[in-house]
């Protein structure tokens, strides 16, 4: 694997995470429990669509095959997607999306903070913009996790169920593979072990503050890095890619 191939894979991974999260967040449009949260969740979706667009565009520019961001988003099948499994899980509950986004936004905040120092200037520039958004998402979702966990018996129960269900999907965020190792040596990629330390520190302070508990079982799912996904990603893509699949090259 050349450095260029690794960088392509790295940008696709970051771009896919943003894209799939954006899809799930956009599903909340008109479904949130209050107007302000409808605005919040769809604003977060918009931030992530923009981030995905920049990352996939950059990936296409370094692949040597000249794909556009749309080519990468709409013309890859499920096993070619490299997002973390947590981003494709369906949100059946408001507490679920808030806990999920608290876990992932906190990860993204520390990830993009580290990537601001990347030796790759474009990645560093995308990180500089993304870190500000991620910080905002992290503050917003953390507030809600505390509000729900420390709220009524019912909101606490649902938030705790979300923590229990999502915890086994958080370990994957920090998995390091050959792509990471090669790019870390060149000063391009972030050190995920270090990010895990910062992430854990934030999470183990926030969860008890929300009167919630982390599960004692530390079993972790895996698969996203090699394109083995949950049953949900195929359903997302079948809807998201429908138009380009049915009418290739259709233009708005």
């Amino acid at each position: 694997m050349t450095e260029q191939q690794a960088l392509f894979k790295y940008c696709v991974r970051l771009g896919d995470n943003a894209l799939i999260q954006s899809y799930r967040l956009a599903e909340w449009c008109s479904n949130a429990p209050m107007l302000e949260e409808d605005l919040a969740l769809t604003n977060m979706a918009l931030d992530m669509t923009g981030r995905a667009q920049m990352l996939l565009q950059y990936a296409g520019s370094i692949s040597g095959e000249g794909q556009t961001s749309d080519d990468l988003a709409y013309r890859r099948s499920e096993p070619e997607y490299r997002n973390n499994l947590i981003s494709e899980l369906p949100d059946n509950d408001f507490a679920f999306v808030m806990v999920k986004q608290m876990f992932t936004s906190t990860f993204e905040y520390f990830l993009y903070l580290a990537l601001m120092e990347s030796s790759d200037k474009t990645l560093a520039a995308i990180a500089a913009k993304s870190v500000k958004e991620a910080r905002y998402h992290m503050a917003h979702t953390s507030d809600w996790v505390v509000r729900l966990g420390d709220g009524t018996g019912e909101s606490n129960r649902r938030a705790q169920e979300a923590v229990n269900a999502l915890w086994p999907y958080t370990g994957e965020l920090f998995e390091t593979d050959d792509v990471d190792r090669l790019l870390q040596e060149k000063g391009v990629a972030a050190n995920l072990e270090q990010i895990q330390i910062w992430w854990r520190q934030y999470v183990i302070e926030t969860i008890p503050a929300a009167k919630l508990e982390l599960p004692s079982d530390d079993y972790q799912h895996t698969g996203g890095r090699i394109g083995v996904h949950t049953e949900y990603l195929g359903h997302i893509l079948s809807e998201m890619q429908y138009l380009q699949r049915a009418y290739p090259d259709a233009k708005w």
């Binding site: 918009l46 669509t49 923009g50 981030r51 667009q53 920049m54 913009k129 958004e133």
Partner: peptide, 8 residues
């Protein structure tokens, strides 16, 4: 031109 917000 410099983009302001991602996705704006």
């Amino acid at each position: 031109l410099m983009p302001t917000y991602n996705g704006c």
